[in-house]
Amino acid sequence: MNAPAPAAGLKPQLFKSDVKPVWCPGCGDYTVLSSVTKALAALEVRPENVAVVSGIGCSSRIPAYTTCYGFHGVHGRALAAATGLKVARPDLTVLAMGGDGDGYSIGGNHFLHACRRNVDLTYIVMDNRVYGMTKGQPSPTTEPDWDSKLAPHGTGLREFHPLVIALASGANFIARATSSDPNGTADLIAQAVRHPGFSFVEVLSPCVTFRPEQRNWKEMVHPAPVAPTDDAARAARRLMTDDGFNIGVLYAGHRKPYRPEMGRPAAEVAELETEFIL
């Protein structure tokens, strides 16, 4: 299947559905939605040639808010579904999206292997360092001393470093974005989609309800002081000493994407459907 021809002159609005988001006003996820629509317009792909696949969480509601094909799947399994879809339909632009809980807790194992497999898709994590949807439990990226009713005095557990883990597991493109810069985030998402293989964009996206202090993130983020590197060892050193607020492309490698030879399908969709015709 060939990639569809570019469609110039698309407006971001074309990618927004009529379903209005139920996110809390001020939630970073609004910006991520807006950035995705801007990126897709700039990439000149039509909504029907894009699939947005998610898990469960506030952030994972995003497919419904776009006019692309969407799959609001099972908690932690966005990457499994997205990988299958991209392998079966390499002509589609596939975005897997979700939260830090979805992607790094219950979906952590899928994350490692999606990086390792390097299928040509883009994974966008809206990281708010909390389980927003289920009312504020700590997630793997939560700071050890974040004090809350559910984890008095904090969990005391060392936080997970998604970018380092992505690099060690083989992701081909690693970037960090911030919801306080919608256009910069759109640019990073567009670069991630263009880059062959598994691209990972971690977006710092505040949960203003359960972590209101994250409203200050907009004062803490700063452009990464160094140019992107294709040297994994150098990227590893940078990411290990990263302050968590460097914004930009942090690694862009050259691994060949995994694209298995597809034999003739066992059955066409139309044939499968005949079974269900009454």
Binding site: G9, K11, P12, C24, P25, G26, G28, Y30, T31, S34, K38, A41, A42, S179, S180, D181, P182, N183, G184, A186, D187, P206, V208, R215, K218, P223
Partner: peptide, 24 residues
């Protein structure tokens, strides 16, 4: 036609209010 995001790359249009400042 040429009015979308890219004009303000890595910044916001100056007159756009910050989305993170809302509260219900």
């Amino acid at each position: 036609a040429r009015t979308e995001a890219w004009m303000w790359r890595h910044s916001e249009a100056p007159e756009s209010a910050a989305p993170g400042d809302l509260h219900y």
